[in-house]
Amino acid sequence: MIRVTHLMIIRTLSPPFPTVCESIMISAIEQIGRVTLRTSSSVGSTLSFAARVFLRMFERRSYNSASRMVLINQIYFTSVQILPLFLFVAVIFGAMVNGMVFQLIKKIGQTDYLGRLLMGFVVMEISPFVTVLLIALRSSSAINAEIAVMKVNRELSTLEIFNIDLIDYLFVPRVLNGILSMVFLSSLFSLVVLSIGLFVSSVIFGTSVDAYIDTLLRSASLLDMIIVWFKCAAFGFFITLIPIILGMNASQELTSIPVAVLNGMVKVFSAIIIIEVLSSIVRFI
C-alpha cells in the first residue's frame, strides 16, 4: 500500500513527456537566438569599428610623424622582410602553375584560353589568395599577439594617458600597411608568375614573346585589374583590422593572449573566405 502511494507521488512529480520535449525545443530555439544575436552583434561592432578606422584613414592628423614611423616599420616587417621568401614562392608557384596551364592548353588545343586562364585565374584569383595567406600567416598573427600583449601590459592605457589616439597611432598605420602590402605584393606576385609564363612559353613551348604578350593583352582588362586591387585592399583591411579587434579583446591575464590570437586567426580565415566569395559574386554579376 505504501509502495503504491510512493509511485503515485513520483508519477505526479515527474513532468509528462510532451512537456520535456517542449522545454528542450524552447531551450534549443533560445540557444539559436542567443548565437544569432551574439554573432550579429559581433559582426555589427566589427563593421562599425571598421567604419571608424576607415574614415580615420582619410584624416590628416592620422599621419603625424609617430604614425608615419609606425607605418614605415609595418611595411618593412610585412612586405620588405618577407620579400625574398615571397619572391621565391612566386617563382616556384609560377613555374608550377604555368607548366600546368601550358600543358592543359596544349592538350585540349584551346590556345585562345591561355590568356584567360593566366589573367582570370592566376592574376585575379591565385595571386591575391596566396599573398593574403602569406601575410595573414605572418603579419596578422603578429599584430594580434602584439595588440594583445600591449593590452595585457597596460601599454594601451599608457598611450591613452598621454592622449595618443589608439586608432591614429596603432590601428590606421597597421590597416593601411595591410592594404598597401596586399596590393603591392599581389601585383608583384602576378608580375613574377606572368614573367615565368613568358619564360615557359618561349623556352619550353617555343611561343614568341609577342604572341604571349598579345594573348595576355587580349584577356587583360583595366576593370578586372581595378577589381582585383579592390579585392586586395579589402583583404588587407580585414586581415589587419580583425587581429587588432581580437587583440583588444584580450583581458589583463597573460593566458588571454593565445586565446585572442587563436580567435583572431579563425576570424581572419573566415574573412578571407567571405571576401573571396563576395568578390567572385561581384565579378560574376
Partner: peptide, 29 residues
Amino acid sequence: IELKVGLFVTITLLLIMASIGYVAYKKDM
C-alpha cells in the same frame, strides 16, 4: 628601414604603373 621601404614602394609602384600604362597603351586608351 626607410631606405628599404622607400625602394620597395618605389620599385613596386613603378612596375605596377608600367604594367597599367602598357596595357592602357596597347588598348589605345
